[in-house]
Every structure is written in structure tokens, then in C-alpha cells.
């Protein structure tokens, strides 16, 4: 118990600082991912010919080792938070892109036919029919991305991005298990917390009618 108290008194402020950095990097990457991948996914659902190609490329990017990607951005963007965010953003894209694509693609074609026949414009169809119906699937993608990002963001430390990875890698270099645990536990807790929060958000964002239909079934 004493050692725990000592650890917090010594590293408490640092821990908070690093947690903030960690969240900042993760959220920045996630926000960029959402902003780019959701519209792109909707667009791809309209372009089935291009969709296969783009999804294929995104899948390949996903297989690159994360460290390699991070290193790859150093000559382009230098070191620090910016290249870290850029690399993590690339990673966050795929789950969101894929889920948006699938979510929009899976909207009942009869509903689209009905909305077309009733005189909705293309934008109205997207905003009032496709997106609300695809929200649960899109949100699931965002949630998955967010949890991955919290994990991957530890690697940002390698290129000077900061975050809880600093504590872990310091611990590894200095043979200090307390620092490793002190960094790893908050990362895990953040991931669990975020998963739970986004799960709540997913539920809230799902239109009432759809939610009732699912829970009833």
C-alpha cells in the first residue's frame, strides 16, 4: 500500500499529464477518422466499382506494422504529436470506413426505392433514411476504432508524441516494473471506459424505432 502511495505522490502529476496527452492524440486521430471515413464510406456505398479497390487498399494499410507507419511519418512530418496523430488516423480509418460502407449498403433497398418514389432528393435520402438506419453499424465501427486507438497511441511515444507510452517505455528502458504497470493499467482502464461510454452513445444515437425493434426481437 505504501509503495502505491509513493508512486502516486511521485508520479501522480506526470500520470495525469500523460493520460491527457494520450487522450488528446487518440481523440484527434479518431475525430479525423470519423470526419474522413464516414463521408467516404457513404460515397463508396454509391460507387460499388471503386469500393472494392478502396476497401482493399485500406485493408492492406491496416496490415502494415504500426511502428513502421510511425517511423514512415518522421521524414514527412518530423517528430512529435502531429506525425503520431497522422499515423493513428490512418489506422482508425478502416473500421469506420468498413462499417459505414456496410451499414449504408445494408439499408433495405425497398426503403430506398420507396423514398425515391416518394420524391426525396439524393441528400434527403442520405440524411433522413440511410444515415439514421446505418447509425448503429457506424457507431460500432467508431467504438472499435476508439478502443484500438487507445492501445496504439502508446506507440506514439516512440516518435516523441508523448502519452502513457512514455511511462511504459521508460519503465522498459530503466527496468522499472512500477512504471510499466503505471502506464499500462491506465491505458487498459481508458480503453474499457471509452468502450462503455461509446456503447452508451451508440444506444442513444440509434433511432428509437430501430432500438425497440431490436430489443423486442
Amino acid at each position: 500500500m505504501d509503495s502505491l502511495q509513493n508512486f502516486f505522490s511521485e508520479y501522480g502529476i506526470l500520470l495525469l499529464e500523460k493520460t491527457w496527452e494520450h487522450l488528446y492524440i487518440s481523440f484527434a486521430a479518431l475525430a479525423l477518422g470519423v470526419i474522413v471515413a464516414v463521408p467516404l464510406g457513404i460515397l463508396l456505398a454509391r460507387l460499388p466499382k471503386v469500393a472494392g479497390l478502396i476497401m482493399g487498399i485500406a485493408g492492406i494499410v491496416q496490415t502494415f506494422p504500426s511502428l513502421a507507419i510511425l517511423a514512415f511519418f518522421i521524414p514527412l512530418l518530423g517528430i512529435g504529436k502531429v506525425p503520431a496523430i497522422a499515423a493513428l488516423f490512418l489506422y482508425s480509418m478502416l473500421p469506420i470506413l468498413r462499417n459505414t460502407y456496410i451499414g449504408v449498403k445494408n439499408v433495405d433497398p425497398n426503403l430506398l426505392e420507396a423514398s425515391r418514389g416518394m420524391g426525396m432528393t439524393a441528400i434527403q435520402r442520405t440524411v433522413r433514411v440511410e444515415l439514421p438506419l446505418a447509425v448503429p453499424v457506424i457507431m460500432a465501427g467508431i467504438r472499435m476504432s476508439a478502443v484500438y486507438l487507445i492501445g496504439w497511441a502508446t506507440l506514439a511515444s516512440f516518435i516523441g508524441g508523448g502519452g502513457l507510452g512514455d511511462l511504459i517505455f521508460d519503465g522498459l528502458n530503466l527496468f522499472r516494473p512500477d512504471l510499466i504497470i503505471g502506464g499500462a493499467v491506465p491505458v487498459t482502464l481508458l480503453a474499457i471506459l471509452l468502450d462503455w461510454l461509446l456503447g452508451r452513445l451508440e444506444r442513444t444515437a440509434t433511432p428509437v424505432g430501430i432500438r425497440m425493434e431490436r430489443e423486442g426481437a
Binding site: L111, A114, S115, V208
Partner: peptide, 18 residues
Amino acid sequence: LRRSIGYVIQQIGLFPHM
């Protein structure tokens, strides 16, 4: 034109979120 013509389909096509 479409807004001025009623349209009913076999699969009904009511919007489940409305």
C-alpha cells in the same frame, strides 16, 4: 413529379426509424 404521385410498394417500405 414524384411528390405529386402516390406510390405504394409490395414490401410496404415504411421507415422503421420514424
